[in-house]
Write a protein that binds this DNA or RNA. Structure first.
Lengths: 165, 165
DNA sequence: TTTTTGGTTCTGTGATTAGAGAACCAAAAA
DNA sequence: TTTTTGGTTCTCTAATCACAGAACCAAAAA
């Protein structure tokens, strides 16, 4: 019996311009700590006309190996950058960029930045009292950062209200 | 003639607790993309009782090689994380954490985040009109991010005023 | 039962990185 | 002039990374 397809090419239709944009956004994602393959996959799922892509469509379109695709998808799932849906009578998962969830992730990012302020407070507490100027500058910085991170959730709420949800 | 000192140990006095804090803060710095040696040096300069340290004090205290020390210091100088001062009749440079300058760097960080919004706008422009819901979510996200990044400089100003500078 | 599908996991590797050590160098001191 | 100081730069290596390829596997289909 002849094998149906030795090398399936499920790659989706995508323009040259779109592929360039995938790279461009991918690089930005890389700068924020995402690894190359994951960055491209995340980027593809925002740019492609089809918003729901299967494992194999992603793999074929991005020319990644199965392992690279699998790892990229799983890190993106773990970091909540993407989700997947299923369809009745279809074993495949359809991966999609969960744009709505980004808002939470965006807020979380500020929360992470807040963590450093806590450590700066530890630092300030243990500092010698012999360097009052330095300590004052540090204290001021801590105060500024605390202020900003306090206000940011308020900004989120304000925006929500303006956009009457 | 007997050589004065084959292996100079200019390491400064530092407590065990302080060294642990250097590691702790260092790891946070690493998470924000700084490389290990640079992260520890930056961290040391915030925690050490002496706020002005020489090349050799940094090297000896952190047990780094000269090359690692040199590279770490130079990257920190380039990224404006530290500055140095000199003293009359002394060829050494005294490196110090420029806490005042952090404010500018802190604001800059938000500016960088703003950059991704521009690319998202490119993405939105080129998206197919066949996915109105997805596009609407993306548009909303862009609108939220733009709003936040617009408000942040205002927050900085507000804080400045409250602290009557 | 065997085959196919939709992946996951293991192994191997080329590329990159972080840092050590030594050679090097210019300005200052002796 | 020679030596010392305060670094910089070059070379080498160990460790890590990102990915390919292949083996593997469970559930579904045939």
């Amino acid at each position: 019996m002849i094998s149906k397809m030795l090398c399936s090419d499920d790659s989706i239709a995508i323009t040259r311009d779109q592929l360039m944009l995938v790279e461009k956004l991918g690089v930005l994602y890389e700068h924020s700590g995402m690894q190359p393959a994951a960055a491209r996959v995340a980027s593809l799922l925002v740019i492609a006309d089809q918003t729901e892509l299967t494992f194999d469509q992603i793999r074929a379109t991005m020319r990644l190996s199965k392992s690279a695709t699998s790892n990229a998808i799983n890190t993106l799932l773990n970091t909540k950058r993407i989700i997947y849906i299923t369809k009745p009578g279809d074993r495949k998962r359809y991966f999609t960029s969960d744009v709505r969830e980004w808002k939470a992730g965006f807020l979380d990012k500020f929360g992470e930045m807040m963590h450093i302020v806590e450590v700066y407070n530890e630092v300030l507490k243990q500092r010698t009292k012999e360097t009052p100027e330095f300590n004052k500058d540090l204290e001021e910085m801590i105060s500024l950062m605390s202020f900003i991170f306090d206000e940011i959730p308020k900004l989120f709420k304000k925006w929500d209200n303006q956009n009457q949800i």
